[in-house]
């Protein structure tokens, strides 16, 4: 805003002197010129295009985050207004001594890593198969990508039915081949992996598309050279092709991890409530439960901030990597 005011004053002067453009090019002392020198020649002129969204995003995204941090430092709970006069880290200490929080954090982490690795592996496998010039390539690509277009609410309901103990298709298949039924949702040791599998089914198609693009970007000569040198297909992929997919891997895993942190929708729809099956509580569900079921706004904000830091610790290195590579 300040720079905008300066702009008006400056151009007022300029009009008196005549010749706006020349004036700016000649003098090197006004604040505008300094700003332009510092940030590029059209910093101020272009501000009307980027400044409004910049301020709006700043207020509604970053302002809200900062506000959330402030609330997490208070003892705000129940109805009324938070008291900002007494700020401390009590809620964070409470989280660390809350076994429910620790369990949820561990589950979040397992979900994050397990889901991402499995999805990348399956996605890569599918991408390589599709890249083998098969027939109906586009059809297969669409089939694999389709689950991603469905909402979590829909897919969670699918899987709730498939995992059903008595009538679920998975247990029916298991019993028909002579195995025992498995309580997919009800066993604390299995449920998280059941969730990982369902999410993997939904997002493997996305990883496939990213990898497919990566594979298509590798020149044919690399395949040919490897073949000429006598590499087997397996060896060719392992030594030549997959190492070149680093960029695809990184960008796909960032997106997948962010989706894993958002698995709240899935767990919520799976049970139709704030309390996921025993063994599948993650930070996102715990946060919402603390906020809306218990009205512990401050505690829930503290969980939110920690979840935010987790997300940032995933995205931050990626941004830095992209910056170093010159992609930004």
């Amino acid at each position: 805003m300040a720079s905008h005011n300066d702009d008006t004053e400056e151009s007022g002067d300029a009009v008196t002197d005549g010749g706006v453009v020349e004036e700016q090019q000649q003098t090197g002392f006004g604040p505008i010129t300094k700003l332009n020198e510092r940030f590029g020649s059209d910093f101020v002129e272009s501000s009307q295009f980027w400044l409004p969204p910049f301020l709006l995003v700043g207020l509604f995204v970053y302002g809200a985050i900062i506000w959330n941090v402030m609330i997490s430092l208070t003892d705000f709970q129940g109805f009324g207004t938070p008291d900002y006069s007494d700020l401390d880290l009590e809620m964070y200490a409470r989280a660390l001594s809350d076994s429910g929080f620790v369990d949820a954090a561990v589950n979040t982490f397992v979900l994050l890593i397990g889901f991402t690795l499995v999805t990348l592996a399956i996605g890569l496998g599918l991408a390589i198969l599709i890249d083998r010039n098969i027939r109906f390539e586009n059809t297969f690509r669409t089939i694999y990508l389709l689950p991603m277009s469905l909402s979590f609410v829909v897919t969670a309901q699918f899987w709730a039915w498939m995992y059903n103990f008595n009538n679920g298709v998975i247990n029916i298949v298991l019993t028909s081949v002579g195995l025992d039924r498995v309580d997919w949702i009800g066993s604390p040791n299995i449920v998280l992996w059941a969730v990982v599998f369902a999410l993997m089914w939904q997002f493997a198609g996305y990883a496939m598309v990213v990898y497919l693009a990566g594979l298509r970007a590798i020149p044919d000569e690399h395949y040919e050279a490897a073949k000429v040198d006598g590499a087997s297909t397996l060896r060719m992929y392992w030594r030549v092709i997959i190492p070149q997919l680093k960029g695809s891997t990184i960008s796909a895993s960032v997106v997948l991890m962010v989706f894993a942190l958002k698995a709240f929708d899935f767990l919520y729809s799976l049970v139709g409530g704030y309390r996921p099956p025993n063994g599948a509580d993650i930070l996102a569900t715990k946060m919402v439960r603390e906020a809306y079921a218990n009205l512990n706004w401050a505690y829930s904000s503290a969980i939110a901030i920690m979840l935010f830091l987790m997300a940032l610790s995933i995205v931050g290195p990626y941004l830095y990597y992209q910056y170093k590579e010159g992609h930004l």
Partner: peptide, 9 residues
């Protein structure tokens, strides 16, 4: 994503 539910507060 990280903050979705935190909006509660």
């Amino acid at each position: 994503s990280g903050d979705g539910g935190g909006d509660g507060g």
